[in-house]
Amino acid sequence: MSKLLDPKIMMAIKDLSLAAKTTIDGFMQGINKSAIKGPGMEFSQYRSYQPGDDLRLLDWKMFARSDRYYIRESEIETNITLRLLVDASASMDHQDGDFKKIDYARYLAASLAYLGNLQGDIIGLNVFREHEVIALPAKQDFQHLSRLFYQLEQITPAGKFTAADVYTPLYTGGGSSELTILISDLYQDTNEIFELLDVAGTMKHEVIVFHLMSRNELELDFQGYSNFEDLETGETIQVDQSAIRKAYMSKLQTYLEEVKERALDKRIFYRMLRTDQPLDTAIRDFLNQRKKLKV
């Protein structure tokens, strides 16, 4: 797998569009070429003719070679609508080493958007921050992709996650099925994030949640710090990390299991991602879920 999928190397590329292209090019070099297909009709396999099959699907060249009747099956690749939901609440400003959760989120979203555009998908972006939703309508062209990259570059985390009464009107009405991807650390004041996922679920969208966690919060390893501030409320507490680590790890594990179970109960694909790990896992998950979506 390309080293350019390493977040530290990827985030050294300041141009977001170049970083996304470099990431996807590196990813595609490391996987079976057949895993990524563009729009159109692609040959899949032959199977024996069965009574009732459409005779127009018979492969006469194969019959000439084998004197047997075969049906040529093809796989139809269809475009989908891909909607990226990015959490821009203040907790996404959490930092581990040289970069923040929001950095990982913007590069992940850019990479998925670039790959979706490459496959002919229609792509939209919603950024959630207290009291507002920045919405970029779903379109398919490189100009639109450039606007999406620009919006991702402008994200400045602030406040809490958008309240449900603000974003719910954006998701009312009909529309075709989408592949909805939420990139978030899932920190919420009440239940606003899972209410958003409920809305997407009722609209019959396929949903992926990429749950971002940093190494230092997963391991409670904040070297040299004893005072901790809640980025969204501003509250501070004093902590002896070594004294509470065992209890913290136990509660964290319980929390992660509950979040995963809650997502699975809603038929949401859930993946926890460490922000110091390469993006290939997330990209593979996107490709797998894309194949399942029926337009």
Rank of each mutant, 00 (worst) to 15 (best):
D25A: 09
L252F: 12
L108N: 04
D54S: 12
L212A: 04
D221A: 06
A113M: 05
A243R: 11
L118I: 10
M62E: 11
A19G: 08
R215W: 03
K160R: 03
W60S: 01
K291E: 15
S146V: 11
A263S: 12
Y255W: 10
G159F: 01
Q29K: 14
N227W: 08
Q151M: 13
Y171Q: 01
N288Q: 13
T172M: 05
L152G: 03
K291S: 13
F210A: 05
D230G: 02
E132R: 14
K21T: 11
K291Q: 15
T162F: 03
S48W: 00
H94A: 13
M272H: 02
A105I: 07
G120A: 02
M1P: 10
E132M: 09
Y49V: 14
N191H: 06
V207S: 01
S214D: 13
N117M: 15
E75H: 10
G124K: 03
F149I: 00
L85W: 08
D67L: 12
K8S: 12
K139N: 06
F99R: 05
F286L: 06
Q45K: 13
T156F: 09
T202N: 13
E261N: 12
K101V: 02
L256R: 11
S111R: 03
V86N: 09
K292N: 06
L252N: 06
D230H: 00
R271G: 05
E261C: 02
Y49E: 01
L115P: 12
R267T: 11
A35I: 04
G26S: 12
K291C: 01
F228Q: 05
D96P: 03
L16F: 01
R274C: 10
I76C: 02
L55G: 01
L287W: 08
M92L: 10
G159T: 06
S176F: 05
F43K: 10
Y167D: 06
F149C: 04
K37L: 14
E75W: 04
D54L: 07
S111D: 00
Q241W: 00
Q238G: 11
R290Y: 00
Q188F: 03
V199A: 13
E132I: 09
L18F: 00
S74K: 08
A200Q: 12
A282E: 06
S214T: 11
L273F: 02
I183H: 09
S91F: 02
F161Y: 12
T22Y: 12
R284C: 12
N227D: 15
Q140N: 14
A164E: 15
Y70P: 04
Q188G: 01
T81M: 10
I122H: 09
K8C: 00
L186E: 00
V127P: 00
H94F: 14
S184I: 00
L145P: 05
P137I: 09
